[in-house]
Amino acid sequence: AEKTGIVNVSSSLNVREGASTSSKVIGSLSGNTKVTIVGEEGAFYKIEYKGSHSYVAKEYIKDIKDE
């Protein structure tokens, strides 16, 4: 089941290729951006990003809701 969340950062949140802080950064999301969460892996959520799937750190996503 998909969930949505809100990016909870003051500046921007790195979007990564994989579920690791050493993964390549492929983009960023600004605070209060709504994201669609399709899964989770460790400390990361797998999200829909620009037509494919990428990862963001869970600690920076708030207001998780089931869609």
Rank of each mutant, 00 (worst) to 15 (best):
T36V: 14
A43C: 12
A43Y: 08
N32M: 10
I61M: 04
T33G: 04
A19C: 06
E17Y: 06
I64M: 08
V38H: 05
S30C: 14
Y45T: 02
Y60W: 09
L13K: 02
N14W: 09
T4Y: 13
K58E: 01
T21F: 15
T4D: 05
I64R: 04
G42M: 04
E48R: 10
E67F: 11
F44S: 03
H53E: 07
K58R: 07
N8S: 13
Y49T: 01
K50T: 04
A19K: 03
D66W: 15
I64N: 06
L29R: 01
S10E: 13
G5F: 06
N32K: 08
A57N: 09
E40D: 06
S12A: 10
A43L: 12
E17D: 13
E48Q: 10
V25F: 04
I6K: 06
V56K: 00
D63P: 12
A19Q: 03
V25G: 02
V9M: 08
F44P: 00
L13G: 05
T4V: 12
Y49H: 05
E48I: 15
K34H: 08
S22Y: 07
V15Q: 03
K34C: 11
K3I: 10
V7G: 04
V7Y: 02
N8A: 14
S30K: 14
E67W: 08
G27L: 02
L13R: 03
T33F: 06
D63F: 15
E2G: 15
E41D: 09
V35R: 00
D66T: 13
A19S: 08
E2K: 15
N8G: 08
V7S: 04
E59P: 04
K50W: 07
S22K: 11
N32T: 06
A57Y: 10
V25E: 03
I64A: 07
A57W: 08
G31P: 15
S11L: 09
I47S: 00
K3S: 07
E67T: 14
E40P: 01
I64W: 08
N14D: 15
Y45E: 01
Y45C: 04
I6E: 05
G39Y: 03
I6W: 12
A43N: 13
F44E: 01
Y45L: 07
V7M: 03
E17R: 06
F44L: 01
S23W: 02
Y49M: 03
N14R: 11
S52W: 07
A57E: 15
G42C: 05
V9Y: 06
I37Q: 00
S23A: 13
G42H: 04
V25M: 05
V15N: 01
S30Q: 14
N14C: 15
S30Y: 10
S52A: 11
S52Y: 10
I6A: 04
E67L: 13
N14V: 15
I64V: 13
E59L: 08
V9N: 07
R16S: 06
R16T: 09
G51L: 04
A57C: 14
T36N: 09
E59V: 09
E67H: 12
V25S: 05
T21H: 15
S54T: 05
I37C: 03
V38T: 06
T4S: 09
K50L: 12
S10W: 06
K62L: 11
K65H: 11
N14M: 13
E48S: 08
A19N: 04
A1V: 14
I26T: 05
E41R: 06
I47M: 01
V38E: 03
S11W: 07
E41S: 09
Y55S: 00
S10I: 13
S54R: 11
E59I: 12
S22D: 13
E59R: 09
G31K: 14
S11V: 13
I47D: 01
T4H: 11
I47V: 05
G31Y: 11
N32F: 10
G27M: 02
S23M: 04
V35F: 03
V15C: 06
K3P: 03
E17T: 07
T36P: 02
K34D: 03
V9A: 10
S11C: 15
E48N: 09
D66A: 11
Y45W: 12
K62C: 11
T33C: 09
A19P: 15
Y60M: 08
H53W: 12
K34E: 07
G39I: 02
K65A: 11
L13E: 03
S11R: 12
G5C: 07
Y60V: 04
S28N: 09
G51H: 05
V35H: 00
S11A: 10
L29G: 00
G27S: 02
I61R: 00
E67Q: 12
H53Q: 08
F44W: 14
Y55C: 01
H53G: 05
E17W: 05
S30A: 14
K58A: 05
V25T: 06
S28E: 11
V7K: 03
V25Q: 04
T36R: 14
K62D: 14
G5Q: 03
S12I: 12
A1L: 14
Y55V: 01
S23N: 04
K50S: 07
H53M: 09
I6S: 05
A43I: 09
R16W: 15
K50E: 12
D63K: 10
G27N: 02
T33Q: 09
E59Y: 07
Y49Q: 01
G18L: 11
L13C: 15
E59Q: 10
Y60R: 05
G18W: 10
D63T: 14
T33M: 10
A19W: 04
A57P: 15
E2N: 15
L29N: 00
E40R: 04
Y49R: 00
I64P: 06
S23H: 07
G31Q: 11
I47H: 01
Y60Q: 07
V56N: 00
K46P: 01
A43F: 08
E48D: 09
Y60E: 07
V35G: 00
I64C: 09
V15W: 01
S11T: 14
G5M: 06
I47K: 00
E2V: 15
S54I: 05
V9G: 11
Y49F: 12
I64Y: 10
K58T: 03
Y55T: 00
S28P: 02
V9F: 07
E40L: 05
T36I: 14
I26L: 08
G5E: 02
V35S: 00
K46D: 03
G18Q: 12
I26M: 07
K62F: 10
E59F: 07
K62M: 12
K24A: 10
G27D: 03
L29E: 01
S30H: 10
L13H: 03
I64K: 06
T21D: 13
G39E: 04
V25H: 03
G51V: 03
Y55D: 00
A1E: 09
K24E: 06
S20M: 06
V25N: 03
V7Q: 02
Y55W: 12
K24C: 07
G5W: 06
T21P: 13
S22V: 09
I37L: 04
T21K: 13
N14L: 15
N32Q: 10
S12K: 12
S20T: 10
L29M: 05
E48A: 09
S54C: 14
E59D: 09
Y49K: 00
V7R: 02
H53T: 10
E40M: 08
V15M: 05
K3N: 05
D63V: 15
K62E: 10
S12R: 14
